[in-house]
């Protein structure tokens, strides 16, 4: 916004705002900065802030050795990949149906899909646990992923996008002899690429961070994602060795955090794009 700075009062106001913004920024970064300090310094400096304190990577080594984090990383990556792959396929097909086909019950079915925006799998833990038992899937990565694969948010987002594709493109492809699935693949999917990227980033950061359902449904190292592994680790194994716990905490958040720092603009744009629709 371009306002002319005319009077001292306006200058003062602007200065106060800048100070406020920076104070808030400092408060917001403080907990993370504190964790980084503790993780990179020997235990005796975890609460003594001397600039000359020696740096060390020891805490990370000890944390890595104290719990099967490598396995947890693998599990989380498998989980995120599995969910995202299924979401992309299922949501694309469903969104295509809602955007470009006329069939009985379409509005009712769409309303039933949107219901999931309110009643998320996170809330239905008791019944979904029972269902997974009946399917014989408890304590597997598939069981963590299944309730999230058909995502109302994804269907909604892609439907909105597909609706903006000009019908002429669709018809031209059909005249060329494409089947509906070929049209989807050759016309709609390429045009929606930025939305796919946005959705993928939001989905991966959601499921990388998800905790309660994985905590309930998993029970072993082989299926636990990072978040649950971190909780088991810091709650039972370590007592209160904060240097190790903060190191492990940073370790589990590192991939997302680094990705975020590298692709900051992309991240922010993606979250925006997902929110505007």
């Amino acid at each position: 916004m371009s306002f002319v700075h005319s009077s001292p009062r306006v200058y003062l106001g602007h200065g106060l705002e800048t100070a406020g913004a920076w104070l808030l920024g400092a408060l917001w970064i403080l907990p993370l900065a504190y964790a980084i300090w503790t993780a990179f310094h020997p235990g005796e400096y975890s609460t003594h802030f001397v600039p000359t304190a020696p740096l060390t990577l020891d805490n990370f080594g000890r944390a890595w050795a104290a719990a099967p984090f490598a396995r947890y990383f693998l599990n989380t990556m498998l989980l995120c990949a599995m969910i995202l792959a299924a979401q992309l396929v299922l949501c694309t097909l469903a969104a295509y149906a809602f955007a470009r086909f006329v069939f009985p019950g379409r509005n009712l079915l769409f309303a039933l899909v949107l219901l999931q925006l309110m009643v998320m799998p996170d809330v239905l833990i008791v019944e979904n646990y029972r269902t997974m038992g009946a399917l014989g899937l408890r304590d597997t990565i598939v069981a963590i992923a299944l309730p999230y694969m058909a995502s109302a948010f994804g269907i909604f987002l892609l439907r909105q996008t597909f609706k903006t594709v000009p019908k002429e493109l669709d018809e031209a492809a059909r005249v060329e002899g494409c089947t509906p699935l070929q049209v989807l693949w050759k016309v709609y999917v390429p045009l929606a690429r930025p939305v796919y990227l946005a959705y993928a980033l939001v989905s991966v950061s959601f499921h990388w961070n998800n905790f309660l359902w994985p905590l309930i449904i998993t029970n072993s190292v082989e299926s636990r994602p990072l978040t649950v592994g971190l909780q088991v680790f810091s709650a039972t194994d370590q007592g209160i060795d904060w240097s190790i716990i903060t190191a492990a905490t940073l370790l589990t958040s590192a991939p997302l955090l680094i990705a975020f720092l590298l692709f900051q603009r992309q991240f922010v744009l993606s979250f925006m794009r997902a929110g505007i629709k």
Partner: peptide, 20 residues
């Protein structure tokens, strides 16, 4: 960056940091 960073951190990790 400062404002948005907490969003990409897992709540579980954040909670650990705040616990400390």
């Amino acid at each position: 960056l400062a404002y948005f960073t907490p969003t990409v951190l897992p709540m579980i990790a954040v909670a650990n940091i705040w616990l400390f």
